[in-house]
Simulated assay, not measured.
Amino acid sequence: MSIVSRSFTCPSCGAPIEHTFPGARSLVCNYCGQTSHLNADDLEAAGDKHLLIDYGSVFEIGQRGAFQEKSFTVLGRIRLAYDGGFWDEWFVQFDDLKEGWIQEDDGQFVMFQKVKDLQTSLKVHHLKVGQWTTFEDQYEKTFITHTSSATVQGGEGQLPFRIIPGEPADFADGILKGRPVSVELLPDEQALFVGVPFRLDQISLN
């Protein structure tokens, strides 16, 4: 896999920031935790600085791994906080250039992949727990099991959409043909993901 790398300077602390993912829209400084948005060839600081605390995850930025015999690289992470705690979502790019998200929540893991960008008019209160929905006729009929609101606590590495620490994020969980579904409604990302739960012994990490 060929990687084209560019170097930027953090607009907050001046530290170097490596850019290797062409689709990145947010880059986070490893030194000070400043989130920046990539605009053409410049970085623009967005929100307050926030370094994520490491709670002993098996994943880390730059790590190589394989899932279902497909190799990937961990490029980024976003942490979402709610009243009862938080969960992490790790952004990965497979060697065939497909993208995925590893949801890590209290020792449970799901590999999600985006299947549909949703219209921005969809709101979490449109989705009713215990009912079927087609997401305003945008996707297949899905059973909604849970809805929630969270806050973007911060990010790490390279992310494919813009985030600002502290901004709101709404979510809905569901089931589609026996597989978990996640609907994510952030200011710069409204999308539907379908996942595959896995145990750590079902994934290889370098």
Rank of each mutant, 00 (worst) to 15 (best):
L52R: 01
P16N: 13
W90D: 00
Q93P: 01
V74D: 01
A15G: 08
K114C: 09
Q131A: 07
G62E: 00
C32I: 08
W132N: 11
W87L: 10
G76W: 06
S71K: 12
W132M: 08
Q63R: 10
D95E: 15
G130L: 04
G85F: 02
W132I: 00
Q119E: 06
A66F: 08
G130S: 14
K128Y: 02
R77G: 00
F59H: 05
R25V: 04
W101R: 06
Q119K: 15
F67M: 00
D42G: 00
D83A: 13
C32E: 07
G56N: 09
C32T: 11
G56I: 06
D95H: 09
L118K: 02
P16H: 12
S7Y: 12
G76M: 06
G84P: 02
E44F: 13
T133V: 10
P16G: 11
H125E: 12
F59G: 02
H126D: 12
H50Q: 10
I61P: 10
S121D: 09
V74F: 01
F135K: 00
D83F: 13
I102M: 13
F135Y: 09
F91D: 03
K114N: 05
D42C: 01
E89D: 05
D95T: 11
Q119G: 13
Y55L: 11
R79S: 05
D42H: 05
D106S: 07
L122E: 07
I17V: 04
G85Y: 08
F21D: 07
E69T: 09
F21E: 04
G23M: 09
V110A: 06
Y31D: 10
D105Y: 06
Q68T: 01
H126V: 04
A81F: 00
K98C: 00
F135V: 04
F59Q: 02
G56R: 02
S26K: 01
F59M: 02
S57W: 07
S71W: 02
Q113L: 05
C10V: 13
C32M: 10
G130Y: 05
C29G: 14
H37N: 12
A15H: 10
L122H: 07
A24Q: 03
F86E: 01
W132T: 09
D42K: 14
R64P: 00
F112S: 08
S5N: 11
K116V: 12
A15E: 13
P11E: 03
T20F: 00
F21Y: 15
D41S: 12
